[in-house]
Amino acid sequence: MLAYTARRLLIVLVTLLVASAIVFFVLEIVPGDPARLMLGLNATEDAVRALREQMGLNEPVLTRYLSWLSGMARGDFGESLTYSVPVTELIADRIVVSLPLALLALGLSTAIAIPVGIFTAARRGTRADTAAMAGTQLGIAIPNFWFALLLVYVFAVTLQWVPAGGFPGWDEGLWPGLRALILPAIALALPQAAILARVARSALLETLAEDYIRTARAKGLPANIVLWRHALRNAMIPVLTILGLQFAFLLAGTIIIENVFFLPGLGQLVFQAINQRDLIVVEGVVVLLVGTVVIVNFLVDLAYAWADPRLRRR
């Protein structure tokens, strides 16, 4: 287990290193000089040159990459060009919106999908199963930002139960904050729930076809016990993989939904930063998201290897 963990950890580190290099060098070839952009159209050549010097833009590319990398290793993501505050501070301000939103959406999608998956697998081939599966096909096809628009129209514009957008901040208390996040979370959760329900159903059906399930039935166990005790546990492995992937997707997927609801989250931060050519902020957020994906996948892999020793030899 220790050797397996070490090997996986090495892969994680290499992946992060290469990903950071990709982000850095892709943004390096971006048209537009950040110094000129900051100073505006009327800036003199001297001023631009001085600012470039001050920002360290005249250093060789490799030197800048290495100093950025070593900074990140120490938790220093650099300083934003437009806001003149540390990038970590900007991210910390925004993540208190994006992270709860992603978690809320993940919780909602799991709470909808798992029962639907179990129900449809247990009643395979019935009308309820067919109807629910048709529903999931529809759920996958609905663009979440369109669903968000409808939610806003029904619950914010017409019924006025919740605000149409914006975020009051957690200082206002838990309830106002949650109220602002509930519609975006539902919009994000719907397509995810549809995918997850299908995965849960097919995983459960596959497990139900196994020999040990037939044995359990043959020895006279009630169908419910076979389903809940024997099948469900084994079927949860693929479900967990998708959940791990979905968390990362939700965190990044908030970028468009935040746009619909005017939420000051990571997505909005990246969007503004891209438009202002505040590249160091863009780099920081993208590396953070890629890091989250890689680390969540790593943890899911470890959980498997812990549960199933056969996987450790790979």
């Binding site: 970028i255 468009i256 890629v290």
Partner: peptide, 19 residues
């Protein structure tokens, strides 16, 4: 593996916004 670690939508937004 590395490409899959990039959130596709965010990266697409980045590419189109920048280029």
């Amino acid at each position: 593996d590395i490409i899959f670690a990039f959130p596709a939508l965010l990266s697409a937004v980045m590419i189109t916004a920048i280029f």
